[in-house]
Nucleic acid binder design. Sequence first.
DNA 1: TCGAAACATGAACCGGGTTTCAACTTTACA
DNA 2: TGTAAAGTTGAAACCCGGTTCATGTTTCGA
Lengths: 230, 230
Amino acid sequence: MLIENAPPADGRPPKPRAKSGSAGSAAPAAPPSAKAPRTARGEKTLRKILTAALEEFGEYGFSDASIVGITRRAKVALGTFYTYFDSKEEVFQGLVRDMSAQVGEYVAPALSGAGDGLERERRALAAFLRFAAEHKQVYRIIDEAEFVDPEGFRTHYETIAERIAGRLAEAAANGELREDESPLAHEVIAWATMGANVFLGLRFAVWGSSDPEEVAAITSRLLRHGLGAK
Amino acid sequence: MLIENAPPADGRPPKPRAKSGSAGSAAPAAPPSAKAPRTARGEKTLRKILTAALEEFGEYGFSDASIVGITRRAKVALGTFYTYFDSKEEVFQGLVRDMSAQVGEYVAPALSGAGDGLERERRALAAFLRFAAEHKQVYRIIDEAEFVDPEGFRTHYETIAERIAGRLAEAAANGELREDESPLAHEVIAWATMGANVFLGLRFAVWGSSDPEEVAAITSRLLRHGLGAK
DNA sequence: TCGAAACATGAACCGGGTTTCAACTTTACA
DNA sequence: TGTAAAGTTGAAACCCGGTTCATGTTTCGA
């Protein structure tokens, strides 16, 4: 019986995992390791491929999506794909990092402006729900990253959780929050909040389409006052 | 041509989705459509295959998992697999339904006993976290169901959300909860709670291993009193 | 204008995993 | 004990999509 991710009983060779391209947060698109385009034409083609990949992966999911499908959508030849990416995994990774950043950029503006910490959190959720409704493929891709690009997936959520925790700490320092002595508290609350947001997005933006403001308002009351009577 | 699941823009043939076996909640294991074993020997073999499949999928994920891998673990011949299942997708589906039920059964006992509604919810979360820690493969499989068996995935979470919402309604009827006039409120809160629980499981039980009671306690305070000062 | 580097093309290669199947073994039951 | 049904076997057919590569085209700086 398995202990903790014990190595397989038999000697199955571990899957080579493509090393993550540095990518960083430079240009809008996410060019991979050492295959960045050197030309205006190349730049354009790369962007076409990334857009096509987003659609293809968003529609079919990773394994049913095909490179041919991507290049057909992008209206380039099959081989062109390999001018910019080493493998199917690699585009996917590029996409995950790109999309991850995009969510952040979309939500950021909601964080500035009037109101206390919890009010900012409310606006962040509303923004996130709007984003999810408008970009359902992105949602799917980030979810599937758990399996195709675990590192990217983890980084994505850890980053968000840290941001939330940071804001909580700030609000706490301002005396806006009830105190919770547990050292784990901030992190737990951050992950709880994030999980709530993600599932609300899935249910009320991707699957259904309720008013983001209303959903955010209800959740915000929950976060501020809790459910207990009195 | 299919109506639901609108066809892709181009003429790509829609993936045939195996019709879900009735399965129901009869025997412990989840036998598929019309291939249930008729013999003690068969029953045993089926169980071996299901156990092996759980390990294989849990370890490698759906697409990297292989039928050969499953049958090797189960110590049966490759062909035997097809005595019980029509395809790789079908075992996975069977597993999802099985695991979904298992989570429910594990958590159920925590719901009876002393305490008000929110206290029961706290115990449910603690139980869930224990389950997640002990069955990381299950966690992974249910997550991956979003892509391999969307219907099973959706059913799983809708069922849980309904249960939570039901308990909330009950607690509300008992006057235990602050009132929220919005008609959406119960459902939103149920999904928020569920999402929080799932992410807490991922972070503090699957990835990390914090004390379930502590995590549940923090979350419970959040749910009861909120974060607001005073 | 010219040449080298960047880019584009798509047929063919290739490997691996799913699924089939005909022969064989075990079980159930009269 | 006999035999039909249930179950088992694993080699091989089959399929399919990722990846390669030799050839042709475009870009761009000198």
